[in-house]
């Protein structure tokens, strides 16, 4: 299982905050209902989108196919050197 708890908690709290906490503290006014709906849907949509992307990559069934050049550049630029 390739899930790490930290990103899951961070983003769930973030979008949960937008979708659940903020709607509760919206000030009273004629547009309160609309603002609540907007915030809740934003939270749900953005969280779901992030979740799908995260979960889809969690257990990759295939790996990236890279050519020689790309591997060399990755090794250099992303700091994981090739073995001798």
């Amino acid at each position: 299982m390739g899930a790490a708890a930290l990103p899951f908690i961070i983003f769930t709290v973030l979008w949960g905050g937008v979708g659940i906490v903020l709607p509760i503290i919206v000030p009273k006014g004629p547009n309160r209902g609309i603002i609540q709906v907007i915030l809740m849907l934003t939270g749900v949509c953005c969280w779901l989108f992030w979740l799908c992307c995260y979960v889809a990559q969690m257990n990759p069934l295939i790996g990236p196919k890279l050519d020689k050049h790309t591997i060399m550049v990755m090794a250099k630029a992303w700091g994981n050197e090739l073995k001798e």
Binding site: Q57, P60, L61, G63, P64, L66, D67
Partner: peptide, 29 residues
């Protein structure tokens, strides 16, 4: 080309935390 094997250490066993892994942009598949 060479395909990195997700079953080995090529994959760190947890996903990129936010969004798609940048490696896919470089890959042929």
């Amino acid at each position: 080309d060479h395909m990195l094997d997700p079953a080995t250490d090529d994959y760190v066993q947890y996903s990129y935390p936010f969004g798609l892994d940048p490696v896919w942009q470089l890959s042929k598949n």
